[in-house]
Design a protein around this nucleic acid. Structure first.
Lengths: 127, 127
DNA sequence: CCTAATGTCTCCTGTAACTGGAAGGTCAAG
DNA sequence: CTTGACCTTCCAGTTACAGGAGACATTAGG
């Protein structure tokens, strides 16, 4: 199957599939006589795997690791868990930062009358 | 004052201050005879303003708007409030996404035994 | 069989907001 | 006078692609 069909099957844009091949994440198996990338079912499964992992917020490098574990029949689940746990902690750290930001900003927005007059606690806080 | 002094006073790396001048966000007033950027108190105030706004997660373009409002004596607080409110909604949207992600991933991590055996609900969910 | 539309190829550029480094000029201290 | 800190410009790299140009391939319709 050509790249367009494979991309649609995996739920990814063609550009992205080509990009994944460029960086050696999910190579197409071979090329047609005229140079078209040919994809098979296994490649599509890998592409879809990466798409789902990306949806979970895993970075490309994390996807690379997860993919090799996915392919490795003798992997141990602890390796996967370690990556997922680390990612989870990153998410939690980001959540803490966002929450702090949100509260302070919400406080300022609430304090700002938002009328035609120039005085504004938001700018006062920044200046 | 030279760029190093100004950067330190504003709490920014020198590279960043130069970058802000390149993109026309906070220009240095003028240059010394040998081409050094000279900064004055007003410029340092603007740099520090931008740093705080960036800490709040405002984008450079939002900083540009806020800065022009900061400089504008006849601004209305509603303009500032509009920008801050929009930014707050972006933060809230990101919080929702992160929370959904966190819950699903935490669930998977919890379900994964993390031992030496190959079966792993995390990979099953991705594959 | 011809044509038009669509698919695919490579290569280049741009995104956001910087950071790092190289090569070279300037300045103050010892 | 020299050393070291500071300054300059320019170029490249970061993340994960997206957009587009120009050219070749394939396919569907008439």
């Amino acid at each position: 199957m050509n790249i367009g069909t494979a991309a649609k099957a995996a739920g990814l844009p063609v550009k992205t599939v080509r990009y994944y091949a460029d960086i050696g994440l999910v190579d197409a198996p071979d090329r047609s006589e005229t140079g078209y990338r040919r994809y098979d079912e296994a490649a599509v499964r890998k592409l879809a795997f990466v798409r789902r992992a990306r949806d979970f917020g895993f970075s490309i490098e994390e996807c690379r690791e997860l993919l090799s574990l996915y392919e490795d029949q003798s992997r141990s689940s602890s390796d996967v868990r370690r990556i997922a746990q680390a990612h989870l902690e990153e998410i939690e750290e980001k959540q803490r930062q966002l929450a702090a930001l949100h509260d302070e900003l919400a406080h300022l927005v609430k304090a700002c009358r938002g009328d035609d007059r120039p005085d504004c606690p938001i700018l006062e806080r920044l200046g």
